[in-house]
Structure formats: structure tokens, C-alpha cells
Design a binder for these strands. Structure first.
Length: 121
DNA sequence: CTAGTGACCCAAC
DNA sequence: GGTTGGGCCACTA
């Protein structure tokens, strides 16, 4: 962890906080919303530097594959917290981005994606 | 200024 | 479906 940025963090945190409960977003998605010289990697930095006591739902941020990118025990914690929010993991610890993927603050979420599940599994 | 790194992403084989 | 390689941006030494 050679980098410890701070200037872009508040910006990224603000976007991450907009992710509704029971929904997940990808790093690239957050980076795109933040724009201004921010990419998926920077989002990863910000998440890594996010204190646990913070109100930032860093657990809702996963990679493009809908999988946990955080290695080690942190990944286990993230998965546990997501399940507690209603996010279900498919095979290989993968999340169905089709249902739980956050379309953005512009898309109105009618109901919990878990409730609209067509019982595939 | 150059080099190295990172909870990533995408195109191509 | 898989792997390979390059690109991306900000930050630190």
C-alpha cells in the first residue's frame, strides 16, 4: 500500500454512500460517476484507506465480475456484510450484477432486487 | 522528472 | 469459458 491519497477520497466516498442498501456497484462505475481524474484503481485505494468506523459502505463495491476483489480476511468480512444486506452470492462467490448491480443514482430502485428474484438457483 | 505500485478494466488471442 | 498484455490515473520514493 504505497499510496495514500486523500484529496479524491471524499469525492469517492460521497458516491459510495449513494449506493442503496442491498445493491452493489463496481469500481469502474464509481470512478465513472466521480469522473475528474478518477479510475477504478483509485476507487480501490480509497476503499483500502476507508476506516471501518466510517459511514462509507465500502462493502458494496466489487469488481466488474461481481466478485470480491479484496483478498484475505477482508473479503470474508465484505461478503458477510453484503449477505446481511440481502445480497446473495451465486456460484464461485459471484454476485449477479444483473439484479444487484447499481445502475446509478439516476435509476429508481422500485424494490429490493432479492425480492424480485425469479427463484433461479 | 522518472520509476514503481495498486481492493481495476478492456481488448485480443 | 479461460489467460495475456496494455492502459488507465493518482500517489510515493
Amino acid at each position: 500500500m504505497p499510496a495514500q491519497d486523500k484529496s479524491l477520497y471524499p469525492r469517492i466516498y460521497k458516491v459510495v454512500r449513494q449506493v442503496p442498501r442491498g445493491r452493489v456497484a463496481s469500481y469502474g462505475q464509481i470512478a465513472e460517476i466521480v469522473g475528474a481524474g478518477c479510475d477504478a484503481r483509485m476507487v480501490g485505494y480509497a476503499m483500502a484507506a476507508t476506516p471501518e468506523g466510517s459511514d462509507v459502505p465500502w462493502q458494496r463495491i466489487v469488481n466488474r465480475e461481481g466478485k470480491i476483489s479484496l483478498p484475505g480476511q477482508g473479503g470474508e468480512i465484505q461478503r458477510m456484510r453484503l449477505e446481511a444486506e440481502g445480497v446473495t452470492f451465486g456460484a464461485r462467490n459471484r454476485i449477479d450484477m444483473k439484479r444487484f448491480g447499481w445502475a446509478g443514482s439516476d435509476s429508481p430502485e422500485k424494490e429490493s432486487p432479492a425480492a424480485t428474484q425469479p427463484s433461479l438457483f
